[in-house]
């Protein structure tokens, strides 16, 4: 593990990005070559309204240090209202996780449109910095809990 160890706490972030806006915004960040931290691994989902609490819980327990959800701006959801439902659900998931020991900085729901490549890079940078600033993994990782 030698090489990896040197990286110390190098957080890994699961990204759940809606196909129509944030995933496309991430593509645009690439097309316009806006460099940003590479801790996030993006998973394409149809809409932020597809996000179930399991996605967050599983990511965190399995080893993610943070979870980032990206959807279309309010009123812009490709399916009209998916992001509004996502917003309510996420608010509750986050407060529940906060309550049992997950720092709020590890969870974020952001609206990034397909044209906001620069903003995508910005919010991901900011989020990643926030997760890094916690300086250690959270306490609910499976390995951590069992030890």
């Amino acid at each position: 593990m030698g090489k990896e160890k040197d990286r110390g706490y190098d957080p890994v972030i699961v990204g759940l990005l809606c196909n129509w806006c944030t995933y496309a915004g991430a593509d645009l960040a690439g097309t316009t070559r806006i460099k940003h931290p590479q801790n996030m691994r993006a998973i394409r989902i149809p809409c932020s309204g597809r996000v179930s609490p399991h996605f967050l819980f599983t990511s965190l327990f399995q080893g993610a240090d943070g979870v980032f959800i990206g959807g279309c701006h309010p009123a812009d959801c490709h399916y009209t209202s998916g992001n509004y439902y996502a917003r309510r659900r996420f608010a509750l998931m986050k407060s529940l996780l906060d309550f049992v020991g997950i720092e709020p900085d590890r969870l974020r729901l952001e609206w990034v449109s397909a044209s906001e490549g620069d903003r995508f890079a910005e919010v991901v940078t900011e989020f990643t910095e926030g997760v890094k600033a916690l300086e250690r993994p959270h306490s609910l990782k499976r390995d951590g809990l069992e030890s």
Binding site: P53, F61, L97, V100, L140, L145, E146
Partner: peptide
């Protein structure tokens, strides 16, 4: 196991949210 217990209690609570 602690981790699966944790998971169970979180999902139970979330399912009852609201």
């Amino acid at each position: 196991k602690t981790s699966s217990n944790f998971y169970w209690h979180l999902i139970r609570a979330y399912h009852l949210a609201g």
